[in-house]
Computed example of a mutant assay.
Amino acid sequence: MELDQIRIEISDTDQQLLGLLSKRRALALAVAEAKLAQNKPIRDQKREQELLVSLIEKGKPLGLDAGYVTKLYHVIIEDSVLQQQAKVQGQLNGENGPVCRVAFLGRQGSYSYWATQKYFTRRAEKLIEIGCDSFNEIVQAVETGHADYAVLPIENTSSGSINEVFDLLQHTRLSIVGELTHPIKHCLMGLPGTNLANIRQICAHPQVIAQCSNYLQSLSQVKIEYCEASSDAFERVRQAKDLSVVAIGGEEGGALYGLEVLGRDLANQKDNVSRFIVVARKAIAVAKAIPAKTTFIMYTGQQPGALVDALLVLKQHGISMGKLESRPIPGNPWEEMFYVDVLANLEDYAMTRALDELNRITRFVKVLGCYPSEDVSPTQVQS
């Protein structure tokens, strides 16, 4: 066969694959309806494991190795789980409308922009993007009704917690209604024709600079320009029209501004992932069929053993803690508020009892939100 003919057949095959993937997603959503009617959990990892084993065996005579099949279906299964959860939550809380207004940091091309796209494409037919210049502006957009939701980065595997966001959560009336993780792949981006040897200025968000500190330390005679978001960094490079000015950010984002990749994998850690939270004016209920997280803050006071006593309450009620973060209380020197993520539904009996007890033994407890967990761990099969 001629090369052109082979490529035509590949395109035809790809079109068929897309049709089949669309059909499979529709069937997965139908499964969610059936599970909800039968009061069954959305995820059934035993069934997933059986499915993977069967598919691996069926793929062998077709020349498809186990690693290829497993990797492919991990993506498909994750998509099915998240699509099903979004559908169930939409029905329960009336979330999935035709239009959704979402505030996020930066403009098109920022990491928060891509996280917003990733989360809300499962929940709204049309997305109205509201780019903001600061975390405070994002929160205000939702509090004043200008936006329905906000997407906020809260922690990163390389640079740790984003303290400004944690501090905003102390005072806002908003509730956490969702979460997602998003891989962060930092690239050095410049105008076409840029030579690495001639770089004199790098534009990037402070969090990006923290995550790429090892790489930046290897450079000499280079000025660091702090930006409000990665999209702002890209725009500065485009506007400068100077081949000595570059930016650090995502490859897809930089391409929107006409920039080219000069270097990849700049983060201190190879697996660089950011966790984002979604906040809204109204709290939501999480369906029993979906794994849930609850986030709350508490002030235990300064007496010895107060924090230990509070954490023992969670242990005694069989509640797993996913995160514990401390932040200073403004106006109270050397005193701290603790942020706690637990793997529990706010409506669970054990969680209700634990919060009642915490209210008795601590100075202050405030629930920031109960929301579906989007941690979809890959189903493992024996080799």
Rank of each mutant, 00 (worst) to 15 (best):
H74T: 13
Q117G: 08
K60D: 13
G67L: 06
T194I: 10
V31D: 13
F166R: 00
E225V: 13
Y119E: 13
A147C: 05
S373P: 06
D79T: 06
V245I: 14
T70Y: 14
A283I: 01
I128F: 15
Y215A: 02
L3E: 11
G322L: 05
S326G: 05
L174E: 00
P183Y: 04
E325M: 00
D79Q: 14
H74L: 09
S244N: 14
Y73F: 15
R24E: 00
S220E: 11
G369P: 12
E252R: 14
G145K: 08
I284T: 02
N272G: 06
L82A: 06
I224Q: 07
H186N: 10
A150E: 00
H182K: 06
R353I: 01
H171F: 03
T116R: 13
S134Q: 11
I56Q: 08
C203I: 03
Q5V: 06
I297K: 10
Y339G: 03
V279P: 07
R281M: 08
K366P: 04
D44G: 03
R122T: 10
H146S: 08
L314Q: 04
L3M: 02
N163D: 06
K118Q: 14
G318F: 05
T157N: 06
A285R: 10
L180G: 07
V81E: 08
G131R: 14
I329F: 01
D148S: 05
G258W: 11
S80A: 15
I199D: 10
Q16N: 03
E143M: 01
E336A: 00
I248M: 12
L266Q: 04
S320D: 06
V313N: 01
Y349V: 14
G59V: 13
A285C: 01
